[in-house]
Amino acid sequence: MVFLLFASLFSFSLRSDPFPWNLQQKMSADDLSKVIQSALAATAGLGFGVTLFLSVRRQRTTEDAQATAEKNYGETLNLVRLQVEQQRSAELTALRTRYKDAAEQMGSTAVAVQVAGVYAMAFLADEWEVPARTRERQMSIDVLTSSFPSDRDADTRQALSVENPLTAGGLTKAIWKSIFQRAYSNNTFGQRWTGADVDLRRKNFADIDLPRSLSHRTFDFGSLHFGESTISSLTFNDCEFRDGKISFAKTQILGELKFVGCTFSGGELDLSVCLGAEKLAWSITFVECEFSGTGITFNGIGTSDSGVLFHDCTFLPSAKVLTGLPDCGSFDFDECQFHDKERVLQDLAPMRTKLSFSREKPPSLTAYRVEDLAAELWGSGPIAQ
């Protein structure tokens, strides 16, 4: 229709007749060709102009829609952020309220309420398990550990025991259980206190009927201190020591400290034990343990009957050097395997303590890890890799 309109206009301009197909006034071929070409060009130009106009309008409409969408998105995002902040603030307020309630429960005179407060505080520490709230988590753990009776609380503990026998040990057992439940090997995120400091220094665990065995635990606390505490005996069964520091520095061990089937793959273990004024004999025993990366320090003070026994233990090539030396006692290695014996024992000078080896086993190739074997054969570098 547009083409016909332009053809009529151009035909009229040539011969004052808007109908080029009029048979009464025939148009020459040249005139007809000019009319057709001019009409086609005008139609194409008009079509291009209309297309360009529509494109510009569409682009403007799209830009306006995008600007509106961005504005709406920004407002929505700000609203979401505000809602998140409000939710976090509400959660923080609720957690701090629970902290206050749990602390009040722990300070109650009723044993059942105290124990409920202990578990509430422990679960609260679980929920603080986010990077931004590690300070609050540590604060909850410190409240738990500070509630253990110390050596200076002996008279008070005895009075409570006479008045109410459950009060003396119920709270302490609940705290002990809560702490070491957070070290189970199969615990998931939120049920472990990885990187936290557990301070059990200057406590008296000998007079309380606590569990004497910790089994299937993975210790990756930031630190676990028993320093200057009193322990009758304690056994670690099938545990892994892989991070942080566990310290028995100046701990009074009245019986035996034992490690059975444990793996020492990282971190630090300080066994600088002592017996105070009593100078009683102590014993540290390792049975069927594997040493591959934990730094172990010995610097104990005891009698000539004190000693450290390694039975059927394996020291892998990556095992760290045993450092320190007890003032008295001996080191006995029975049926042990050493992949680098001289390096591991280089700090245990025989001149100050007695070292004995019996039924020593040759190093087994199966005890090598792949990277240890590669380092042993080829050293470090592209070939080893």
Rank of each mutant, 00 (worst) to 15 (best):
T43N: 04
M121F: 02
G324R: 15
C328S: 10
S356Q: 02
A65Y: 14
D312H: 13
G307E: 08
P165R: 11
S150G: 09
M351T: 07
R58S: 11
A277T: 11
F236M: 00
F53Y: 11
D334Y: 12
L77T: 13
A29Y: 01
T285L: 14
M106F: 09
L348C: 04
A125S: 01
R352F: 15
S232T: 08
C289F: 07
S215C: 04
V370S: 09
K341W: 05
L373G: 11
T303L: 06
F241G: 08
R182M: 06
F236I: 02
S28N: 10
V84G: 07
K250F: 14
L95P: 01
F123P: 02
L214G: 01
F12G: 04
L32Y: 12
E376L: 07
L32E: 05
P165Y: 08
L254F: 13
I253L: 15
F315V: 03
R60H: 05
R201S: 14
L325C: 01
S358G: 13
L54A: 10
D142P: 04
N78E: 12
S292D: 09
P382T: 06
R202T: 12
S304N: 11
A319P: 03
H339P: 12
T145S: 10
D312Y: 09
D101M: 11
C328R: 07
K100P: 08
L14D: 02
D30M: 05
N78Y: 10
S89N: 05
E163Y: 04
V56K: 13
W128C: 05
F12E: 09
S265W: 00
S16G: 09
S147Q: 04
T323V: 13
L95M: 01
I296K: 05
A69Q: 06
R96P: 09
Q25P: 08
D243N: 15
